[in-house]
Computed example of a mutant assay.
Amino acid sequence: MFALVAVSLAGVAMSTPAAAADDAAATDQSKLEYATPSKLSSHDLLLDATMAGKRMIAVGQFGHVIYSDDGGKTWEQAKTVPTQVTLTSVYFVNEKVGYAGGHDSTVIRTDDGGNTWTQVYHNVESQSPIMSIYFVDEDHGLAVGAFSFVVETKDGGKTWNQRTLVADSTDDSHLNKIYATKDGTILVAAEFGKVFRSTDKGETFTEVDTGYEGSFWGGMALKDGGALVYGMRGNVYRSTDDGVTWAKINSGTDKSVGGGWELDNGTVVLIGLQGYVGYSTDDAKTFTEVTRADRLGYVAVLPAADNQIAVFGEPGVKLQPDDAAKALDAVGFKFSEGS
């Protein structure tokens, strides 16, 4: 089984055999295999998380989709999820409509904030896991994945068409994260230090030279209009011009980085391998490293209740302080400015 971005971070993700279906069969939900209810769904491997309004949503192995309406204190499993494949990505267009993607080129959709889901795309023959999903608006969306796999919908997920990211390109690098900056420029973080950029709502993309040769495992937009991409061995690059140029910043670590979030107070949090959590209070220019005592792999982070963050990965979901000093104190290290 091919080891993908999120799989590399957590180290143990494997796809569960999917129903023998193709895209055309996605409308017949009765023929699909459904995720099994599990009391351990919030303690098993989780590979992505996002916000749906005030609701926290996370996805992971065995088709698990979980959500929390109390800031991460308690979690419930989605009632109906028509797949058992490992889900690697989740994206919400608004607080009700969302999509999740995963192995066997699977995409599922919810219209009720994550309570129930339907399968809208499935192509087991492609053997290309979906790694990230982004919607320009309620109708137009892109799902990207391994070996430059891209499928696109322009009717809200009713139909999907396979396409290339860059016209006439034979590139087969893994497309690991698609997202948009504050101004609407769409960026794709990929292998071999590649970032692809679109200024026409995803109709066309061009490759940007970042000056890095390793793999980017993820990326995120910043509220000030900037953007980050991050990946192997603590390499984090920042753009202040909508993704045209990139400069390496101090991540405070040599551990691989796979996910991030900007909190309401402006703190930027990154998450990664070997228990890495990085906090920045200077607009993502430098980060203070906090190493979790469990030293496990994490791939996503969200704001949680009571001045905490929720981190998602190999052990499911865990909570910790949203402040570097408090987080360092919690794991037994003394904090000092600039540390």
Rank of each mutant, 00 (worst) to 15 (best):
T267V: 12
A190V: 01
G231T: 09
A167Y: 10
G156Q: 09
E203V: 13
D171W: 01
S215I: 04
L222S: 06
A227W: 08
V195H: 03
V166A: 01
L165N: 02
G226N: 09
L222G: 10
V268F: 08
V195F: 05
T181Y: 02
K154H: 14
A227N: 12
T204K: 10
W261T: 10
A189Y: 01
G156Y: 08
T240W: 04
G157N: 03
S169H: 06
D241F: 07
D171A: 05
K194V: 06
A247T: 14
D264E: 14
E203T: 12
D155I: 01
V166N: 00
G202E: 00
A189G: 07
T159A: 08
M232G: 03
M232L: 15
W160V: 03
T170H: 14
V244F: 09
W261F: 14
T210E: 01
D183A: 14
V268Y: 11
M220A: 13
G252W: 10
S251I: 04
V188L: 00
T210H: 12
M220W: 12
G218K: 09
R233S: 15
F196T: 00
D224W: 13
G184L: 07
G218Y: 00
G156M: 05
D254P: 04
V208A: 02
G260H: 00
N176S: 12
D209G: 09
S173D: 13
R238K: 15
L165W: 00
K158R: 15
D155F: 08
G260I: 00
A190R: 01
M232N: 10
G226Q: 09
R233L: 14
V208P: 00
N265Q: 02
D224M: 10
D172G: 11
G266C: 02
S198Q: 05
L222K: 08
K201M: 08
Q162V: 13
V268W: 08
Y212A: 01
V268T: 14
K248T: 06
F147L: 10
E207H: 08
S256L: 01
S173E: 11
R163M: 10
A146I: 09
D168T: 08
T206N: 10
K248A: 13
G219H: 04
V151F: 15
A167W: 08
M232T: 07
D264Q: 11
M232W: 13
Y212R: 06
A247H: 12
G156E: 08
Y179T: 05
S215G: 06
D172F: 08
E207I: 04
V229Y: 01
D171S: 12
W261C: 12
R233W: 05
G157M: 11
S251N: 09
Q162R: 15
E203R: 12
T181F: 02
T164C: 04
W160N: 04
V195Y: 06
L175K: 00
E207P: 03
K201R: 14
D168R: 11
K223G: 12
G157F: 03
Y179M: 04
G260N: 03
G145W: 07
T153L: 07
T210M: 04
